[in-house]
């Protein structure tokens, strides 16, 4: 299968906060030689503990952070090399963040929150959409009533707001959606509901998912492939069905912890 998006030998480092010398420029490397590929229509889980660099990887993937080394290829075109590449990525990618409380501008009505996605689609496709109708359709798509459009983000529960964020992400008609810990801050019951919704949307809209999380159960529920990230390095990439055969130490530890928990 031809990969839709591909990352080749990505290295990222940040300037350290505490420098040894006055004008020191020592850097802390966060990602080491990360490579991954994401075929169209698949769902890749990126699994790692806190500080493993998975959110940084997400930033690189959605075009917000230019890596020092390596490149991100979208259908063979380099994203960070040219303006067109970046534009192409922006047109095809959308994102849902972990912290739903800051995901929506608190001064916007839900209508305007989703409207931003709709506007992006209008601009790209050069068409005029019926605003109200489109908002209602999208809210319906994520299982919310049309009356939510006139509310403010703080008047919604976490699960509802995360659904709004998904509606917003879908509104710009992307091909690829990146979920940065999108379900981690919800309770288990809501998590399952949201994941079911995502599965359904994936089928209906023919989407590709990249799923950043620290929750192995969620990954096995949603994804086709898993990529383990440990201290900035990819330790293993494996299909979900073959997860039991993993040799990777960190993956094994995670697996055991779940088994212990369930036993």
């Amino acid at each position: 299968m031809i990969p839709m998006i591909e990352m080749q030998n990505i290295c990222v480092s940040f300037r350290s906060e505490q420098q040894e010398k006055v004008f020191g420029a020592s850097r802390k490397q966060v990602l080491f030689d990360v490579s991954l590929s994401l075929p169209k229509g698949s769902c890749l889980g990126i699994l790692g503990e806190s500080g493993s660099g998975k959110s940084t990887l997400g930033r690189v993937l959605c075009g917000l952070l230019k890596p020092e080394k390596g490149q991100v290829l979208l259908d063979g075109m380099s994203v960070y090399r040219s303006r067109q590449g970046k534009r192409a990525l922006q047109n095809r990618l959308s994102v849902v963040f972990q912290d739903y409380t800051t995901s929506a501008n608190p001064r916007f009505l839900i209508r305007d929150v989703i409207g931003e996605g709709i506007r992006a689609r209008q601009r790209r496709e050069g068409i005029a959409l019926n605003y109200e109708k489109e908002v209602t359709r999208l809210l319906d798509l994520v299982g919310l009533e049309a009356s939510f459009a006139g509310r403010f983000p703080h008047q919604l529960s976490g699960g509802q707001l995360q659904r709004v964020c998904i509606a917003r992400a879908v509104a710009c008609k992307p091909e690829l959606i990146l979920f940065d810990e999108a379900i981690s801050s919800l309770d288990t019951h809501t998590q399952v509901q949201i994941m079911d919704l995502l599965k359904e949307l994936k089928e209906r809209l023919d989407l590709t998912y990249a799923f950043i999380t620290h929750d192995l159960t969620a990954v096995t529920y949603m994804c086709d492939n898993v990529l383990f990230l440990y201290q900035g390095r990819v330790t293993e990439q494996i299909a979900v069905e073959r997860l039991a055969e993993t040799k990777d130490e960190y993956a094994l530890r995670l697996l055991h912890s779940i088994i212990d928990f369930e036993a």
Binding site: L93, S103, N105, A120
Partner: peptide
Amino acid sequence: NSNYVLFSRCIGTPERFVLLRHLVPS
């Protein structure tokens, strides 16, 4: 660096919109 601004930048919302609708009211 709040998520709603990051989202806008991800999907390529024009800078003018981000500045005037997100940042100025904040």
